[in-house]
Amino acid sequence: MNYEIFDISDFKQEEFEPLGTKAKYWCSDPLGNHYLFKSIETYDSTNSIVLRDGEDWSEKISCELAKKLLIPCADYELARDKSARGVITRNFISSDNAYLVTGNEILTNYSAPINTEVQKKSEKQNIMHVYIILRRIIRNKPLGFNSLPSIKSAADYFTGYLMLDALLSNQDRHSENWGLIVTGKGRFHLAPTFDHAAGLGRNESDETKENRLTSQDRGQHVSNYVQRAKSFFYLKDKRLRTLKAFEYFGILNPRAAISWLTQLNALTTDIMQAIIEPVPAEIMSDVSKKFALEMLCCNKSNMMNLLPFFKENLDPSFRKRQIKTYE
Score class of each variant (00 low, 15 high):
M163S: 08
A154R: 11
L167E: 00
E117P: 02
N140G: 00
M128Y: 09
I93N: 03
I133Y: 07
I106H: 08
G160H: 09
S150Y: 11
S95F: 13
L162P: 08
S94Y: 11
L148R: 11
D156P: 06
P149T: 05
K120A: 12
L164E: 02
K124V: 11
N115H: 05
S147W: 07
V118Y: 15
P142A: 04
M128I: 10
F158V: 04
F158S: 05
Y99A: 02
L143E: 07
G103T: 10
L143V: 07
M128C: 04
A166D: 06
N104F: 10
S122E: 07
K141A: 13
L143A: 03
A112D: 15
D96M: 13
N115A: 08
I106F: 14
L134H: 03
K121P: 00
I127M: 09
F145A: 06
S150T: 04
L134R: 03
L167D: 00
Q125Y: 06
H129G: 00
I133E: 03
L143F: 03
S153E: 14
Y157C: 15
L167W: 03
Y157P: 05
G144T: 03
S94T: 11
A166M: 02
L100S: 01
F158W: 10
H129S: 10
S122G: 07
A112S: 14
L100A: 05
P113N: 08
P149V: 06
Y131G: 00
A154G: 12
I93C: 04
N126A: 11
G160R: 09
Q171L: 02
A98E: 12
K124N: 01
M163G: 09
Q125L: 05
Y161G: 05
E117R: 08
R173C: 11
G144C: 02
N109H: 13
P142S: 00
N97G: 01
L100K: 05
P113I: 10
F145E: 01
N115F: 07
G144E: 06
N97F: 07
D165V: 08
I151T: 09
I138Q: 06
N146A: 15
H129R: 01
I93W: 00
T102M: 14
D96I: 14
Y110W: 10
S153I: 02
L168H: 04
K152P: 02
Y110K: 09
T102E: 15
E105I: 14
K120R: 13
N140Y: 00
K141C: 12
T116Y: 11
L148F: 13
A112F: 14
Y110N: 13
Q125D: 01
R173S: 05
R135H: 04
N109W: 11
L168P: 01
Y161S: 12
N146C: 11
D172S: 12
L107R: 10
P113V: 12
L162S: 07
D156H: 06
N140R: 09
R139H: 11
L134A: 05
L134W: 00
S153P: 10
I106R: 01
I127S: 05
L162N: 09
G144I: 08
P113M: 12
N109I: 08
A98L: 09
E123R: 04
L167H: 00
